[in-house]
Design a protein around this nucleic acid. Structure first.
Lengths: 104, 104
DNA sequence: TGCTTACATCAAAAATATTTTATATGAGGT
DNA sequence: ACCTCATATAAAATATTTTTGATGTAAGCA
């Protein structure tokens, strides 16, 4: 029951940009190096770096360094936390209010 | 398999604002009239109207008119479509790439 | 009809996010 | 040490979102 709207919002912000959705799609195919992401994405190198930071901070993606390369992949824990969050946010209570607030 | 990143992004945009998350939480308790939402939300009347439009366009919420009142509630179909979308976006392929792109 | 209430729409201002360019950092290699 | 490559960070420019205030519309009631 996360009641911190800001941190919830941060996760969704990660998903509301077209470039980041493209990144996620590429990562669904497995771990990718930043250079490979850049060459398929029409954002500059620093642009990718910015977007990856947003994805990392959301918890949906993790990274790993190897020499001078950075590899990114989808984080299963973050992904399932996201699914739970969405379910939680949209699940209607067992006994929802039956009448509006303006009835006589 | 929705490949339209923009329409996917639109759904998440609905969820990346604190005020709209608060609205959703209120709607989890059942249908609410706009006036009730406004009085709990610290956004103006026109502000609420803007946010509700965003939520409606995302498909997560529906509305109903009754005289001069407007009632909003969570749309179960939209909610479950959202859950599916999130699962789809973060599900890693059966045979993900095992190596990075920069190996020798 | 005229008045009020509930909400929507518009436009301008304010706040945020993204893109772009330039520069910095850190890992190798020579 | 110096050079290069891969990526990160900072700052400025631009774009997008959100808020705010004014105005519009439609329903209900006197």
């Amino acid at each position: 029951m996360d009641s911190d709207y800001q941190s919830q919002a941060r996760v969704f912000k990660a998903l509301c940009d077209e470039t980041r959705l493209r990144v996620l799609e590429m990562l669904r195919g497995g771990e990718k190096c930043a250079c490979k992401l850049v060459e398929n994405l029409d954002c500059g190198q620093s642009g990718l770096s910015y977007h990856m930071k947003v994805l990392l901070e959301s918890g949906i993606v993790t990274s790993r360094q190897e020499g001078k390369w950075t590899y990114y992949r989808i984080c299963p824990e973050g992904a399932s936390a996201l699914v739970s969050l969405v379910q939680q946010l949209t699940a209607v209570a067992d006994d929802p209010d039956q009448f509006g607030c303006c009835e006589k």
